[in-house]
């Protein structure tokens, strides 16, 4: 099963959500943000190397509480990526590990589209701001065209009660509210997923709620 965590806008917390959703799914998380990688990197080969034909996808797996496929940090590396290799690379990791979560880049160019095209299902991340919702709606359209069925939307870093119903209506998918919680914010950097670190927190409950809808 390949799940894309997407959302048109940058900075809404896609990487954090992808990491924590992967933890709850016991999945590998792949940083497919070729130009602005966010997940922790390592010293070994990364997704840039795989998409440039220099490394086997399995070599790039980096162990930890959540297994990560990191992405390179250089623009030259991003330029050298051949997106046509992504499908077979992710397929290989899926065969090896079962479930794969793709942390998608912002925008709606091919680097955002191809992970959606490769995925079986998708989760959208939006912030409670109206413009982030507009981007999420556009990304939903893209996910629909590329056949990555939308299983839900995470409204992230919520401080005040958001208009959940409006968002669910606009996206046509169930909405999970992930409250602003510093433990979620730090979880990627500290490599301590909130579902393990604070299983009773509202954020962990929301993440498990999203994960329950993911077909397996």
């Amino acid at each position: 099963m390949i799940l894309a965590v997407a959302g048109g806008k940058g900075g809404v917390g896609k990487t954090t959500l992808a990491y924590n959703v992967a933890a709850a799914l016991d999945a590998v998380v792949v940083d497919t943000d070729l130009g602005m990688a966010d997940l922790p990197s390592g010293r070994g080969p990364d997704l840039h190397d795989v998409l440039a034909g220099r490394a086997d996808p399995i070599e790039t797996l980096r162990s930890g509480p959540v297994e990560i496929v990191p992405c390179g940090r250089t623009l030259a590396g991003a330029r050298a990526c051949d997106l046509t290799r992504l499908e077979s690379a992710i397929g290989r990791i899926e065969r090896e590990r079962g479930t794969v979560v793709l942390d998608c880049p912002a925008g709606r160019r091919s680097d955002a589209g191809v992970p959606l095209a490769v995925a079986d299902a998708s989760v959208l991340v939006a912030s409670p701001r109206a413009f982030a919702l507009a981007d999420a709606v556009r990304t939903r359209e893209l996910a629909r065209e590329l056949d990555a069925g939308l299983v839900g939307c995470a409204v992230n870093r919520v401080v005040e009660e958001p208009p959940t119903e409006t968002i669910a209506d606009a996206l046509g998918a169930p909405v999970a509210v992930v409250p602003a919680d510093p433990r979620v914010g730090r979880s990627v950097e500290d490599e301590r997923p909130v579902v393990d670190n604070a299983p009773a927190s509202d954020a962990a409950v929301a993440i498990r709620d999203i994960v329950r809808r993911v077909p397996r």
């Binding site: 070729l34 130009g35 990526c81």
Partner: peptide, 19 residues
């Protein structure tokens, strides 16, 4: 679908100048 996405959506590569 990935080929369709690559063909129909914009080029992902950062501009040469930035490199």
């Amino acid at each position: 679908p990935p080929l369709t996405a690559i063909r129909t959506l914009g080029d992902h590569r950062p501009p040469r100048e930035t490199v």
